[in-house]
Design a protein around this nucleic acid. Structure first.
Lengths: 351, 351
DNA sequence: GCGAATCGTGTAATCGATTCCACGAGGATC
DNA sequence: GATCCTCGTGGAATCGATTACACGATTCGC
């Protein structure tokens, strides 16, 4: 593979001049420039990004460590992150932690070794020494979706509290009183926050959230199945299950179906995180939708701000409830009362 | 960030010795080794992968350029690729082409500039000059899922012909005679192959595949919707639609639902690529399942074989039909005739 | 017409590693 | 006791870029 020396030789100039042409440095004669450009085209020369990075100490690369690529929510997040990064002239290397702290550390270490310019993390746990060291060492970092409390790093996330309140109102309105939740790992902010928001919303209606109705999941489908089976085995099973992410909702659907039961007749279901498939499940699933694309883009902008010396800011965007049929038949909307008039944060799905 | 010089200074040895310790070169005294290791731990030193790559001319990184990350099939592929690569000591940088040749080229160029050790590609088109040049220049490359004919690169893929034949047999058995297909882009091998396999299987039953029943899609949901609407507008619409990938099947489902029609009563549906959500759609979708994880792992092994000087081999694995309810009620299986006895390649879904 | 400013260019240092080569100390061989 | 290995080590070249600095050639001002 041709190097800058070959180009210099072919153009009859020094490597410095070639470098200047490539970096659009002003002081190069038109003559030299055309000769260099010709040589570049001729040899099919492409600058070695590795050498360039070593010299300039920047890789124009962002690391993205997410909890689980197979989760459609994170897939979409990753996609929007890559798009925005590309628009700003950066590449992205994705590390999939699979909800495992050790894997998360593996990827963080790997990315740090590669001298990425900045790190976007959706932490799987409360923060390993490695990650805390990286922050302390001044690695540009931004948390997205989940974060680690007491660490001074900008956070880009959605606030689901209002939407959870809307959800509980919706459930209460349908007559449900025994509501259960499949929570995520308590070590994650999204894991504990969603339970808290749910509990607080229930309290507004004077409803309790007994321990028996708080199942411990891990954001993976299998745990949703397991917890739901536990609920169904209870002497008095809940009437509704609220899954704290879409994969656990899938697991719950599996569990209900495996017993030959029906959603929502035997057990109603709602989920955090909306995905295209929820429109087509049987029944369509009522879910809380995050502005995923916006989150990814805002996170990249915050990180690049930090990298390029500007001051990054945390961003919190609202999530919103999307009502479908998995919690019971919604009242048919009357023409005189459009969804918009009912509530600004509740959207009735058109499906 | 500490460099090898700092470690050398702290340990009172030369950088050469530090490097030897780090690379487990035998000729280092026990004394020097312990001093170096102590200095490394002390400074929290981590070798700079950029500098190492420049010197050794290897990055221990694989590039993976796929057509569409948002497609669950490719997400799973990417995940298995990363897992196997990690097991073999490589990292993976994913480039999402979004079914766009220009984006594909962008990523290939970017990965080449970064001097990745090898490239795994699922080509979006028939092969850009850039890609052909890369092959000619000797870049280790392996095609996965899709490939480019007449290019001498190992291919790892699934052969769906037998499964498509099983599907047509299944459809014919249910009484369907007017079968249509939503094809992928003709420029992709999977786009044209699946149509051909379908046409050939139909021919075995004396059924035609009229042009009006061959819709041109692009592997994205929107095209599935559009094509399906076209089918439904026909004077004599088909009885079944076979979508060449899961996203177009989702689009088809959308289109049917938007008209207030039912699957399979008004229009039956089958898809290439099985995904977990198909179990829970309304109705569950009959699909052809690829051994996705195996494909990803085999592709990585082939590529690493090539990189490390061994001879890589192409791999073709069989796909299999998974019958669900989207094509009509399947005959209830009789105890005396288990799925295994019926056909080795047809699996009756347990859902 | 002479000193100063400007412009284009090349030389060489540098980034952080790996690795070839040379060298000195010590042990084995005769 | 001289010679030859072996072993551990350091010096220095190298990978492919960027960039500070120096230098010669023009051009400008007065």
């Amino acid at each position: 593979m041709a190097s800058i020396k070959d180009v210099a030789a072919a153009a009859g100039v020094s490597v410095a001049t070639v470098s200047r042409v490539l970096n659009e440095h002003p002081s190069v004669s038109a003559d030299a420039r055309t000769r260099v450009l010709a040589a570049v085209a001729d040899l099919g020369y492409r600058p070695n990004a590795v050498a360039r990075s070593l010299r300039t100490d920047q890789t124009h690369t962002l690391g993205l460590v997410i909890s689980d690529v197979m989760n459609p929510y994170f897939t979409e997040l990753a996609r929007s992150v890559e798009e925005e990064a590309r628009a700003l002239g950066y590449s992205v290397i994705i590390g999939n932690a699979d909800e495992r702290p050790d894997l998360q550390d593996h990827h963080v270490r790997n990315l740090l070794d590669r001298r990425i310019d900045g790190l976007l993390v959706s932490p799987t746990d409360g923060g390993s020494p490695l990650m805390l060291d990286a922050v302390r060492a001044g690695t540009p970092m931004v948390f997205v979706d989940r974060w680690i409390p007491a660490v001074d790093v900008p956070v880009v996330r959605a606030d689901g509290r209002a939407a959870v309140r809307d959800l509980v109102a919706h459930l209460y309105g349908l007559g449900h009183r025994r509501l259960a939740i499949i929570a995520g790992p308590a070590a994650t902010t999204t894991g504990s926050e969603r339970v808290e928001a749910f509990r607080a919303a229930l309290a507004e209606y004077g409803l309790p959230l007994p321990d028996a109705y708080t199942g411990q999941g891990d954001f993976q489908a299998e745990s949703g199945r397991r917890v739901t089976e536990g609920f169904l085995d209870l002497p008095e099973p809940p009437e509704v299950v609220f899954a704290a992410d879409n994969l656990m909702a899938l697991g719950a659907l599996d569990a209900v179906r495996a017993r030959g039961l029906r959603v929502p007749d035997d057990l109603a279901l709602a989920a955090f995180d909306d995905i295209p498939w929820f429109v087509h499940t049987d029944p369509p699933v009522t879910a809380i939708a995050q502005p995923t694309g916006e989150l990814g883009r805002a996170a990249v902008r915050a990180l690049v701000d930090r990298i390029e010396g500007r001051t990054p800011t945390s961003v919190t965007l609202p999530a919103r409830l999307v009502v479908r049929r998995s919690c019971g038949e919604p009242p048919t909307p009357t023409p005189s009362l459009s969804p918009v008039q009912r509530s600004t944060s509740v959207q009735r799905s058109t499906s």
